[in-house]
């Protein structure tokens, strides 16, 4: 019989995992050295099919409450995913190492252990499911802004599911700020580990 059926499964929230709650990663720059630029913004706004002139019409944007061209609400959260100019091509590297690469594994520089990453949660639970997202907005980034991010473990809960399986719900919170330290937005992502 499985552990689940005998009721022997233990809550996976160990003391080591509990100790991670509140742990913050290093604050790192998410944007390129030249800050938010127009062409990346154009690609992004086209991809979300948002023709808002606040993103491209300088004269109009200057007269709005934002005082200039701004970006969509959570644009800044995608900046750190981009491959820096001059870096080794991560796609070629990934497929050289694994011709069956899924396009994610081995592609992102540093993966989950690079600068700004949180320490891994020490659990044997491997399956990862997205449990939901929360977004709080305070200010839109502007062209030329340099963006910084800092992640922390906001909460980790342990459960035994109805079928007796152990499960963790891990909530990470990432705060994005600009070069002046102004808070732009907070993103929380909850993942289930089973």
């Amino acid at each position: 019989m499985s552990e689940a059926k005998t009721g022997a499964a233990e809550n996976p929230l160990t003391d080591k995992i509990k100790a991670l709650i509140g742990t913050s990663a290093e604050r790192v720059e998410a944007s390129p050295r030249w800050g938010i630029e127009r062409e990346g913004l154009r690609l992004f706004t086209n991809a979300i099919m948002d023709p808002d002139p606040r993103y491209w019409d300088e004269e109009f944007a200057r007269k709005t409450r934002f005082g200039g061209i701004v970006t969509p609400p959570i644009y800044c959260s995608y900046l750190s995913r981009k491959t820096p100019a001059g870096a080794e091509d991560p796609i070629s590297r990934a497929f050289r190492e694994n011709p069956e690469s899924d396009g994610i594994g081995g592609v992102r520089e540093g993966g989950d252990s690079g600068p700004g990453a949180l320490p891994p949660v020490p659990t044997p639970l491997k399956r990862i499911l997205n449990a939901g997202n929360e977004i709080e907005l305070y200010q839109y980034p502007r062209l030329g802004d340099r963006i910084y991010s800092q992640a922390r473990y906001a909460d980790i809960k342990g459960h035994i599911t109805k079928d007796g399986s152990p499960m963790l719900v891990i909530t990470t919170e990432t705060t994005y700020t600009n070069q002046d330290g102004d808070r732009l937005c907070i993103l929380r992502a909850s993942t289930i580990r089973r």
Partner: peptide, 13 residues
């Protein structure tokens, strides 16, 4: 595909 390219998400699915 346009979204994947815009944010450089190369997940093949």
């Amino acid at each position: 595909f346009r979204w994947s390219a815009a944010i450089e998400n190369w997940h093949r699915i």
